[in-house]
Design a protein around this nucleic acid. Structure first.
Lengths: 244, 244
DNA sequence: AATACTTAGTGTTTTTTTTACACTTACGAG
DNA sequence: CTCGTAAGTGTAAAAAAAACACTAAGTATT
């Protein structure tokens, strides 16, 4: 029997992109009263998980993602650890811990990871719970300290895409330049100039133009591109600057 | 009696700058054989500490630094968490844990913090142990997973100084532009052009020129500058770019 | 008093990057 | 066939980056 660590957990901020907005995966947390059928808890969380005693935290985070998405090679990065002694002390959280057979007094350290997936690659299933993509802007109050975790993940993401070519993770394998530009715009919440964006992109040798076009769109079809990790690895400088 | 958390610790990578090289604070770890006076352990570690049950990890890290340096307002930032189940399993580490009355089988999650201080501000004292500034390049093998922790801290530092004005933390309050340039050179391990560096610096309104000069140097004395956090806070853009 | 030594401090030119900005093209829908 | 929609393209001006060498102002040495 594999032992669960009673004091470490991982929380995954799974970012998705649906073609127009940056979204995040949110799980409903509901708890019914034992007697009546009334919901005594009905709120939302990020996806999290326990860590097995013999498991690395990275593996635990991959496990969450695999269970959720069926994907086993998603981008995943640790961004911050949350260990405030009071982080699970709000009434609903205490109640939840009790009813799910955990020690409500334990101090649980959670390591935050964020991941990036193209929303449409994913069919969502998770432990029978209700999971939804929610635009980051429309995420309301979350349980535990999950609003803080989400904000920190977003901060890391906004900075990281300046340096590392990870925006592709949010797109289908073949994508158009407009889609790529939209991803930056969605993450930073700003608008970019199309021509200047393309000039910048043109310098990146690891963006490979395919001999292929969009089909089935009611306008001029766009060219498709792929990201070549091979070219990227070969050509990247030590302190890569991806600033757009 | 304040309870110590048996499974969380903090490790602090304390970077210092001595005027020419980037250094890091290293602690000697020695253990004598009970019978003979022979040293059975004689190696080196970063500075770490336990966390009290009712204490945030940030406070624990500040506590390490205060104990070490007597300073209570050093720059400190969390950078990564290390939780590999095997991280304390090497023979010397196991022995050390036994002899210092800790459970060698426990899985201890450590949260890495890095801090920046001007080496000469600090008089080192720590729990009667021998502590030394060591140039980052000359740090040899460290105990536990501390080499990995140091490398990750360095990676974070190298990136962070592109975005945030934290290099001043490694200098005396009043400093010269050459000193500032040397800090960037020491951290990145590259040489920068003096004139181009100064042109870049001239754009930063929060670097205040003082009406004061170096004294006691056997050459033309340099002007002194201070960093104004007030001006910085007022003028910084959302996505600040400190690239040099 | 003169000279040597050392680091401070400064400007220009060229190249690259950024910014601002508007029209034509290719497809499907009706 | 025409309408609607997003794709795709160039230029000029401004800003930033890169390359590059000499003079100035102190202390130390003789």
């Amino acid at each position: 029997m594999r032992q669960i660590s009673p004091y470490i957990s991982v929380d995954c901020v799974l970012f998705g992109y649906n073609g127009s907005e940056l979204e995040v995966l949110i799980v409903d947390r509901t708890l019914k009263d034992d007697n009546s059928d009334e919901l005594i808890i009905n709120d939302r969380t990020l996806t999290g998980n326990h860590v097995y005693e013999d498991e690395t935290i990275e593996d635990a985070a991959y496990r969450v993602l695999f269970d959720l998405t069926g994907l086993d090679s998603v981008f995943l990065e640790q961004f911050k650890t949350f260990a405030n002694p009071d982080r699970l002390k709000r009434p609903n959280d205490q109640l939840w811990l009790q009813r799910t057979n955990r020690n409500p007094d334990a101090r649980i350290v959670t390591v935050g990871f964020y991941s990036l997936v193209a929303t449409d690659k994913v069919k969502l299933i998770w432990k029978g719970r209700n999971v939804n993509w929610v635009p980051v802007k429309e995420v309301g109050e979350l349980a535990f300290d999950h609003n803080e975790i989400l904000q920190e993940a977003l901060k890391t993401l906004r900075l990281r895409i300046k340096y590392e070519p990870i925006t592709f993770e949010l797109l289908p394998e073949k994508f158009t330049l407009t889609q790529l530009q939209n991803v930056y715009e969605a993450i930073w919440g700003i608008e970019l100039d199309k021509r200047n964006f393309r000039k910048k992109i043109a310098r990146m040798k690891y963006l490979i133009t395919l001999d292929e076009k969009q089909t089935g769109v009611a306008h001029k079809p766009a060219r498709l591109y792929v990201f070549s990790r091979e070219v990227y690895t070969k050509t990247k400088k030590e302190l890569f600057d991806f600033t757009i």
